[in-house]
Nucleic acid binder design. Structure first.
Lengths: 142, 142
DNA sequence: ATTTGTGCAAATCGTTTGCATCTGA
DNA sequence: TCAGATGCAAACGATTTGCACAAAT
């Protein structure tokens, strides 16, 4: 739980954050950014975020939610997490870190990057560059 | 590359392997088992295995390939690997181990379980049991 | 005004299911 | 024989796309 990067103000106005990422701050993006970044680290699916948006009043098409999630990911505001072959999760924590994945109810829990150490990593095959290391700790009711 | 478990004969007849897993050795299962287990460790998608089956002569419906992959997985002959939100990979190596994932062409490469060590794993939350630890090393042309 | 994003519905992709038919023991 | 598998096509859920409209600079 120690220091995450506080120098990049997670609390800046949604508009500022979007602008800084090179995205035009439209009403929908502001809304989604608010939902995503306004309450600490989150793990969302498109479906879930869409439901939240609807509940919060402003109408956003599901397709727009998908588009926006991908734009945010391309802009480095989000990170896609592959744990379930059926669903895409998006993580608002873009620092290197890992996850518990609850296979029963599909919940993700962060594990800080410093907490886990992976040793013995072989070098990537020739011509390949390392793009990231993901550790998924699968857990179950037990 | 050191010792994988040779005591469980990977070279037994497809029929024997299936029988041992409690599956009736039908023509299609024999064919698929042959393709899967006859050439060392493999990583396949349903689509890929279906294409191979077609090429090898015997007709198998894609749905049957899916069913069979799931039956084999339930029987412990295969392991499902979640690296790509869009596709399911099945791994013929069921020992604990990890993977390189080539994001450009979707290839998986095994990393032996002994080679990598993960330290600092937090205990699962109360009431939860550890079900597995997957390390995915994402690599890219570069 | 011009550029860029949005909404909607339809298309697409991977995957699963229902049901009649066939097959292995 | 007869439980259990298969094939096929249709259903399905998640995701993407095409295009007319709307909003931001």
């Amino acid at each position: 739980m120690a220091g995450r990067n506080e120098s990049i103000e997670k609390t800046a106005s949604p508009g500022g954050r979007l602008r800084a990422a090179g995205l035009r701050p439209t009403r929908q993006r502001r809304l989604l950014a608010g939902l995503l970044f306004g309450q600490g680290d989150r793990h969302v699916t498109a479906e879930l975020l869409h439901r939240e948006a609807e509940k919060s009043g402003c109408h956003v098409a599901l397709a727009t939610v998908y588009n926006t999630l991908h734009q945010f990911t391309a802009a480095g505001l989000l990170r896609r997490v592959a744990v379930d072959p059926a669903r895409s999760y998006f993580d608002t924590n873009t620092d290197p870190h890992h996850h518990f994945y609850d296979e029963d109810d599909g919940a993700l829990i962060d594990i800080s990057g410093e907490q886990i150490a992976v040793s013995g990593l072989p070098a990537p095959p020739p011509g390949m560059a390392l793009a990231g290391v993901d550790v998924v700790v699968r857990i179950r009711r037990g």
